[in-house]
């Protein structure tokens, strides 16, 4: 069942933000295994410094997007998600605390289907933007 707050959401409404625990190298290692993205830039600090031109490992962009997905599955069942699109605008690293914000842009209801378009924005604790995008969720009202 979709969260009741989704059923009552109106354009302009901010959805409850989801805050994630500070990212760790362990998170990047788990995502490396879970996703098959074995680029050492995300898991090997020596590689990141010597070959990647970074100060340390950086998080997978797709991990940030997956956390946006986590935000969305808290709102509605996964099969209610019609689309999700993001732009990656900032890097993540160990220690970054991410928060996903969502705002309702449009709401339409036809044939018992409630369809909401959301703006998504992932920010880090100092306000740095990590990604932004849109998602469309469609749920059957019953």
């Amino acid at each position: 069942m979709p969260a009741p707050l989704l059923l009552n959401a109106r354009p302009g409404d901010h959805l409850p933000p989801m805050q994630f625990a500070p990212l760790t190298r362990h998170d990047f290692a788990l995502y490396c295994g879970g996703s098959g993205d074995h680029n050492p830039l995300h898991t090997d600090s020596d590689f990141a410094r010597e070959s990647g031109g970074q100060d340390d490992v950086i998080g997978h962009g797709m991990l940030s997007m997956a956390l946006a997905g986590r935000f969305l599955t808290a709102l509605a069942p996964v099969d209610a998600l019609e689309s999700c699109a993001v732009r990656f605008v900032g890097k993540t690293g160990p220690g970054d605390s991410l928060t996903c914000n969502g705002k309702v842009i449009t709401r339409e209801e036809t044939g018992g289907i409630l369809r909401l378009a959301l703006n998504l924005m992932m920010i880090e604790a100092h306000g740095r933007e990590i990604l932004n995008g849109q998602a469309i969720i469609a749920v059957r009202r019953s």
């Binding site: 680029n39 990647g52 962009g61 797709m62 019609e82 993001v86 990656f88 995008g133």
Partner: peptide, 17 residues
Amino acid sequence: TLADTLHGSQSFTYGVP
């Protein structure tokens, strides 16, 4: 070259689970 790449954006349009 992999080291020269950045991930710009990503989108999904969904059908069946």
